[in-house]
Design a protein around this nucleic acid. Structure first.
Length: 605
RNA sequence: GGUCCUGUAGUGCAGCCUGGAGUGCACGUCGGCCUGUCAAGCCGAAGGUCGCGGGUUCAAAUCCCGUCAGGACCGCCA
């Protein structure tokens, strides 16, 4: 049926009789004797010349057979990859007619997202979405190749699984054969892959679907894809090197740019300097510590165990933020859990000295004001934003403000889908290269082992209960557990957490101790994942692993702000699938067979 | 569970603050004209539950309350 793809035709093919298949992108009729049809497939668009009148409409599916020739001099189209040639003497076969599409199949038209979701099959025809899906495919292929080349063995693990202790809500699947009992869909293949280490698989990987019943976000869907990795007889450094190599290779393969090497920050440093455990190190505005400046301050707003600041640089000597924007930031700080946000405008007084303007200035003595300006290296026109609180809260609130400023106010990051006003069908490789620019790729290491204490006084795993404590800190497990670091590490790209991993506990004594601190009795532990503990009795190698979020990596490389744009059929924020209408009610017969009675919502609460 | 933004013709918007006839723009659709366009051009036509419900008012797209849907975020979540 087809001899060539539309976008592949070029001057080398001139003179050939060709057949192309695709969708009508545009049609231009010039009366009775001349018409043009632009036919589109995923590779691009080719112009076909029809001498006579035609009856075709946009998005009809055609097979066009004709002779390829040079376009007449002066009619070439430099914006089209096939713009030097055209198909003439066309025979048109209509393979399928089509209703007018609900929105134009072009990148340059911004269609409403809910409409795009409902007609996803049309949306995916758009060149940008095509390039996103193909970028994802190329990325997966490269990652898989990288793992296989390093001796990793791809193993499938079950989707019908058992509850595991990772903390996220799980999707539940009723059993028909064992009425009243349930499977859950895995939040990750974590325990399965640890079992595989006991089995001597040595190096495992899987491109795995993970399912978590948690609220959705721009970077979170119920179901997402991870490159899941586990290896035996390794240390954290080994895992990190493998992951870094594979990821850098894959990024270079699909974008053409080498963004290595991968930086390293400890968790404490990341929080201290950037106020987040997933810092985007681009854009400056690191956090400055002002605690010592306000050690004995009488300003109640700044009297706290920790005082942190960021300096927003002057914009051509002028204040970078209006009063309105500052008010917005104060609100944002509160929504992030801060008590507030203090701001100070730095100005130059009549005598040439730097002065501060702020509602708080009257509460600060000269030494405090001068100290703040000095420590911040602030200059006229700058704005100093200050949060005073416990160390972690102060850092994290200011970190959230920093992200807000970098994303929305200062950088004005484009979403990458806004196209220029050309008709070039973007080639996914070159498009991704354009989007890559400068990147911030780094490891965050030395996470705390515990995140805090729950209401019952038990410690909460920061990662999961099988994470190995840092060997240097094991002595603190009894006296000072919250300061114990773990052998867990995250990979962070441009401020997005790309993945995380750890060295696992393989020593039963340490594991028992951790369970105890987590408030998990051995009975409770063995009820939940006794099969893993059993397995560990039969010869467990030291092991550790990692998991990389494919959706996020693809979105970043594609220049997309939401992973929905790199997933073929995503769900909305309320978990609805606009294409199929899922989730739906089940018939009483089906429910009965499963032994399930549905209580209507809002009853019995 | 919460905060914020959006909802007007098939599509993308303007109108809303400051109430006065569904008021307008562009694209698309349909019809006509047009032999080198490429987001073709020109002429004409059709196309509306202003998301939905209630309230205020002589009068509501506009103001108020509620609700639904989509989105961003907090909580939650590797």
């Amino acid at each position: 049926m087809r001899t060539h793809y539309c976008g592949h035709l070029g001057e080398d093919d001139i003179g050939k009789r060709v057949s192309v298949c695709g969708w009508v992108a545009h049609r231009r009729e010039h009366g009775e004797y001349l018409a043009f049809v632009d036919l589109r497939d995923y590779t691009g668009i080719i112009q076909c010349v029809v001498e006579g009148s035609i009856d075709v409409r946009p998005e009809w599916v055609l097979c066009i057979t004709g002779t390829l020739r040079h376009r007449p001099v002066g009619t070439e189209n430099e914006y089209l990859s096939t713009g030097m040639v055209e198909i003439t003497d066309c025979e048109l076969e209509v393979l399928s007619k089509a209703s007018p599409p609900p929105f134009p199949v072009e990148d340059r038209i911004e269609a409403d997202e809910s409409l795009r979701m409902r007609y996803r099959f049309v949306d995916l025809r758009r060149p940008k979405m095509q390039s996103n899906l193909r970028l994802r495919s190329a990325l997966l292929q490269s990652l898989r190749r990288g793992m296989v080349d390093r001796g990793f063995c791809e193993v499938d693990t079950p989707l019908l699984w058992t509850p595991t202790p990772e903390g996220a809500r799980e999707f539940v699947v009723p059993s028909r054969l064992r009425r009243g009992e349930f499977y859950v869909l895995p939040q990750s293949p974590q325990i399965a892959k640890q079992l595989l280490m006991v089995s001597g698989i040595d190096r495992y990987f899987q491109i795995a679907k993970c399912l978590r019943d948690e609220d959705l976000r721009a970077d979170r869907q119920f179901e997402f894809t991870q490159l899941d990795i586990e290896a035996s007889f390794v240390e954290a450094e080994d895992i990190r090197n493998i992951v870094a190599d594979v990821v850098l290779e894959a990024i270079e393969a699909v974008t053409g740019s080498d963004i290595g090497p991968v930086g390293v920050l400890t968790w404490k440093e990341a929080i201290d300097r950037f106020g987040t455990d997933k810092p985007d190190t681009r854009g400056g505005m690191e956090l400055t510590d002002l605690t010592s400046c306000f050690a004995g301050t009488s300003a109640r707003a700044l009297s706290a165990p920790c005082v942190k600041a960021i300096v927003v640089p002057a914009n051509h000597g002028d204040s970078p933020l209006s009063r309105n924007m500052l008010d917005g930031l104060v609100e944002h700080a509160k929504s992030l859990g801060g008590k507030g946000l203090a701001w100070f405008r730095v100005t130059r007084g009549e005598d040439g000295s730097l002065q501060l303007e702020s509602p708080l200035v009257k509460f600060l003595d000269d030494e405090e004001q001068g100290g703040m300006v000095d420590v911040c290296h602030a200059d006229s026109g700058d704005i100093i934003l200050v949060v005073a609180d416990e160390w972690r809260t102060a850092c994290e609130v200011l970190g959230g403000i920093r992200v807000q400023l970098l994303n929305e106010v200062l950088l004005g990051i484009s979403n990458g889908s806004g196209k220029s006003d050309t008709v070039v069908v973007p080639d996914y490789v070159s498009d991704a290269s354009t989007a890559s620019k400068e990147r911030s790729l780094l490891w965050v290491t030395d996470f705390p082992l515990f995140d805090g204490v729950d209401d019952d006084g038990n410690f909460i795993s920061a990662h999961h209960p099988f994470t190995m404590p840092h060997p240097d800190d094991v002595g603190m497990l009894e006296d000072n557990p919250l300061n114990v670091r773990s052998l867990a590490y995250d990979l962070v790209l441009d401020g997005w957490e790309l993945g995380s991993g750890s060295i696992r506990i393989h020593d039963p004594d340490i594991q028992r101790n951790i369970f105890r601190l987590l408030g998990l009795s051995m009975e409770a532990a063995s009820a939940r994942f006794g099969f893993l503990l059993d397995a560990f009795d039969y010869g467990v190698p030291p092991h550790g692993g990692f998991a990389i979020g494919i959706d996020r990596l693809t979105a970043l490389l594609a220049g997309e702000q939401s992973i929905r744009n790199v997933i073929a059929f995503p769900k909305t924020q309320t978990g609805y699938d606009p294409v199929t209408g899922a989730p739906k009610k089940l018939s009483p017969a089906v429910l009965s067979e499963l032994g399930i009675t549905v209580r209507s919502p809002h009853v019995g609460q």
